[in-house]
Design a binder for these strands. Sequence first.
DNA 1: CGGCATCCACACGGATACTG
DNA 2: CAGTATCCGTGTGGATGCCG
Lengths: 150, 150
Amino acid sequence: MINQYTFCNLKTEGIAAMKARVDQDPKGRKTVHDACDTPCAIERGMRVIGGKWTGSILWHLKDGPVRFNDLARMIGGASKKMITERLRQLQAQGLVTRQVMDTAPVSVQYEITEFGRTALGFLEELRLWSESLPAELIPAQEARRSTGRA
Amino acid sequence: MINQYTFCNLKTEGIAAMKARVDQDPKGRKTVHDACDTPCAIERGMRVIGGKWTGSILWHLKDGPVRFNDLARMIGGASKKMITERLRQLQAQGLVTRQVMDTAPVSVQYEITEFGRTALGFLEELRLWSESLPAELIPAQEARRSTGRA
DNA sequence: CGGCATCCACACGGATACTG
DNA sequence: CAGTATCCGTGTGGATGCCG
């Protein structure tokens, strides 16, 4: 009978791994201890860099500051709206900085912060892993149907 | 005029460290070279393990087979529907296996495959990174409003 | 127990137009 | 150039019920 599991915890004090468990009382009812009180670290991390395009954006900034439209150009498939949205989010989280250059016409530069760079390691790993994936199992990026508006 | 992007192409031949560049021709028009091959790997990877709860599920299977309901219990916050859905997806992608045990009542065991394990590496990295994040910037998991139905 | 079916509220995100 | 505003189809995913 399976009644003992380990899974992710938020407290990293003892690091190693506090073990979350599913226990069974005499009556057979189960309770979880130290479950993912909050969404797991995994989930929480995903909320930060797992947004659509978020990873790509961050990734594109790794080689230096990039201007808005260039960024949009690089990430083919993402609308300006999305780029803006995600950039704002990343900015609010301190992963990138936004700097308006005093030129005409205006130009805005986005740059990854030191903090943002700490995420690149993981992204690199993800990239390597992804590239080893058989193409068939990648869920096709479906084209949304047009809104029908002129 | 937007008419030339290379993105999400699945050719992974040259990969290595292709730098995406935005070039400008004499007339000031810009073109992108080697745009998304690399970054899109990020996006593609996200499509596979970036789904809601997907990472958590995989993560929770790392220590051994787990039964459906126990899995659901562990991942507090996810509905059975989601768990099922994601499990099916993971199964179709060969990251987990599903095995119906011959017991009464039925019990079903999910187990991570060797292939699935290859993803644990960066999930671990993600976990470490996430745990270092200040709690404030984690987008709260908003509670959906009830459907109003009885 | 381990689901599937249904219903439905949103949130997401593309398209488009407009602005300084 | 670098957005903002708006409109709206569509996907996502929680809630609930039923079933073998």
